[in-house]
């Protein structure tokens, strides 16, 4: 997700029917709607359909046979493992960063916020490259790692670290503006009532940010499971060992196993669709709780 695109959580609002002066003529409405829908159909709906069409080209049996492959299962396992580490790590970071930034005044705050966004501005390929430069055979710690028989690059740790890098800002950038907008009064109220720091966080802050946190986690998870460029650089493409699902898609595709490739891709597409649905639900819930509290 983008650097600096305003989160719908902090901007969403409901609107009444447009006043007369804001309405466009019928032919303008129809033309623009048609243009928009045709454009979106070509660029969004068609690729979506293509994934499933290609995956099912040889029939349902061939489609499902693609998942019985042990390499595919290994790729699923590795993808889940990667997300299971990177997402909680970045969620904890996001909460801590948002607490420090939203609750306390200090100098350099806006610089810190910019730095947190930095991974979004960096090409995923470069995200992979930086870890090769540090942990690769030629890198800073390369010879030390070889001496101690620790493998990071072309191994699972590298995949997890690179994934953590590219998904780094997701939770923080949802929570920082949200917590800043909410202010500190409820936390202060809890403090005057004798609550400890932990009690304040668990009983007051967390319930207020839960939708934003969930939203960030959903986006973070989608990217963690789908990351391709960064992981591609550090993985080494060892089948059954350092292949994540997106990498497995590439391997099968390059082997001209299109049905298998699109079948695995359809799995990731379903994940993307589930992400969009969850994201939309969270946006609604959040908007509802927000309008209720004002």
């Amino acid at each position: 997700m983008p650097a600096a695109v305003a989160s719908p959580l902090t901007t969403a609002g409901s609107r009444n029917p447009l006043p007369r002066a804001s309405r466009d003529a019928a032919w303008v409405r129809w033309t623009l709607t048609a243009v928009a829908l045709v454009f979106l159909a070509f660029f969004l709906a068609l690729p979506l359909a293509a994934v499933f069409a290609e995956g099912l080209r040889r029939g349902v049996a061939a489609y499902f046979a693609s998942f019985r492959d042990t390499d595919a299962l290994a790729a699923i396992r590795l993808t889940l493992l990667t997300a299971a580490i990177a997402v909680p790590a970045n969620a904890v970071f996001g909460v801590a960063a948002a607490w420090a930034i939203a609750k306390f005044p200090f100098r350099g705050k806006s610089l810190l916020i910019t730095l947190i966004d930095l991974p979004f501005a960096v090409s995923p390929v470069i995200a992979g490259l930086v870890y090769v430069l540090i942990f690769g055979a030629n890198g800073w710690f390369g010879s030390w790692l070889i001496d101690h028989d620790v493998r990071i690059i072309f191994a699972v740790p590298g995949i997890i670290i690179a994934t953590t890098f590219v998904t780094f800002p997701f939770v923080a950038r949802e929570l920082i503006p949200l917590m800043q907008a909410q202010g500190n009064d409820e936390e202060y109220a809890a403090a005057t009532l004798g609550a400890s720091g932990w009690q304040t966080f668990w009983r007051v802050t967390l319930p207020n940010i839960k939708w934003g946190l969930l939203y960030g986690i959903i986006l973070c998870n989608a990217r963690a499971m789908g990351e391709f460029g960064a992981v591609s650089v550090v993985s080494g493409h060892i089948r059954g060992e350092t292949d994540t699902l997106p990498l497995h898609v590439e391997i099968l595709y390059n082997e001209y196993n299109f049905v298998g490739s699109f079948a695995v891709a359809s799995l990731l597409t379903l994940l993307a669709l589930v992400t969009l649905v969850l994201k939309t639900i969270v946006e609604w819930r959040h908007a509802a709780s927000r309008s209720a509290s004002t």
Binding site: A45, G226, P246, A265, K279
Partner: peptide, 18 residues
Amino acid sequence: ALVDLPFALPTAVAGIAL
């Protein structure tokens, strides 16, 4: 909701689909 698809869809999947 679909407008966010390019954010949510893994890039490799988008690549082979396109």
